[in-house]
Amino acid sequence: MGKIVGGFWMPHDPVMFVAPDAPPAAQRDAVWGAYAQCAERLAALQPTAVIIVGCDHYILFGPHCLPRYVIGTGDVDGPIDRLPGLDRGVVRNHQALAEHIVHHGEGQGVDWTVARSFTVDHSFSIPHQLVVKPAEALLGRELPSIPVYLACGVDPYISLERSADLGRQLRAAVEAFDADERVVIIGSGGISHWVGTVEMGQVAEDFDREILAHGVNGDLQALCAYRDEDILRRAGNGAMEIRNFACAMAALERPRGEVIAYEAVPAWVTGLGFVQLNNEEPA
């Protein structure tokens, strides 16, 4: 029987790579340091596999086909978007577990869209290269990583509740897997940022800290209670990525969070939050 042994929320801000020196040194050191901390904490969980929940930015999928949720079950490579310092290459997937998640979902009324050959974007590759790869170096072994993509960037958006449903489905599938897997799930994205709109460059720290508090409290109900129009107004179209947070949080049975770092970084056009999610021990 497999187990989701932990989770993380972390950002995937491409501007960090385009202009690494734009923010004050203290801020950029805090953010890069947070990724390093996440890598150490990931390795400490002794995982055997990782699921990274990302989202398309209207690059991978076009108006001819806009899936609400996708899982990569086969060959994975990327990122498709070239960023300085982010290498493009092949990613080792856990094909057996990914295919099991799909088959298990069929029995639960969850019909995954499947990408048997999938090129990811930076929403997968930034956590993978800044956290999973360093954790592999610490552990001295590979961590196969499964991409799951939710529709956060392009409408029709997946709902927050449905995102949480998928997290629960991922947990059930992992627990029904034959092998003794220890899986960590990463919700990639957020927090506040406006992409391509006139507000781009603003950061909504009050919203960000609300979201972080929901993570600390493991309050999935509060996280899923936001209306889309309020997220868009208060924190921008990029903040719709809290769907990935909901999915990751719901994959843990009794989640409680710890904030690793938060920086509001206008120079990187984003409020950058890092949270570790743990399973609270039953009383």
Partner: peptide, 15 residues
Amino acid sequence: LGCTDEQGAGFSAAL
């Protein structure tokens, strides 16, 4: 897009 002076002034040096 019609940004205000404030929005333009505060815009990221990175972009």
